[in-house]
């Protein structure tokens, strides 16, 4: 139970950090950054997963990526609440879905 509630509490705390300028919280930004930049790192820059994990690490480091190499897609999740996807599109690199 604790394992399920804690991420949600953290997420809500992060969500409460926004509001002064743009309607984004850090977890939401982190998950979209992870999906897009991990996709670009793997399929445009053609680095390894380990190198791309280092390249795309941000603070807070809450987003985790799942890589679909066959379809050249990246799915990222943060705190079990936010998710984002990006796909490779040839010479146009990667774009959020």
């Amino acid at each position: 139970m604790t394992r399920r509630v804690l991420p949600l509490l953290v997420a809500l705390a992060l969500a409460g950090c926004n509001g002064e300028a743009y309607d984004n919280n850090d977890a939401e930004l982190a998950v979209r950054q992870k999906a897009k930049e991990m996709c670009s790192c793997l399929f445009v820059m053609e680095l390894t997963e380990q190198e791309c994990a280092a390249w795309t690490r941000v603070s807070p480091n809450v987003a985790k990526a799942t890589i679909d190499r066959e379809n050249q897609r990246v799915h990222a999740v943060a705190l079990g609440f936010w998710a984002a996807d990006a796909r490779f599109d040839g010479r146009h690199g990667c774009v959020h879905d």
Partner: peptide, 14 residues
């Protein structure tokens, strides 16, 4: 803070 940045909102946010 990320939420103050226009460029981060443009690239990854709203």
């Amino acid at each position: 803070p990320y939420y103050l940045s226009s460029v981060i909102a443009m690239l990854y946010g709203i």
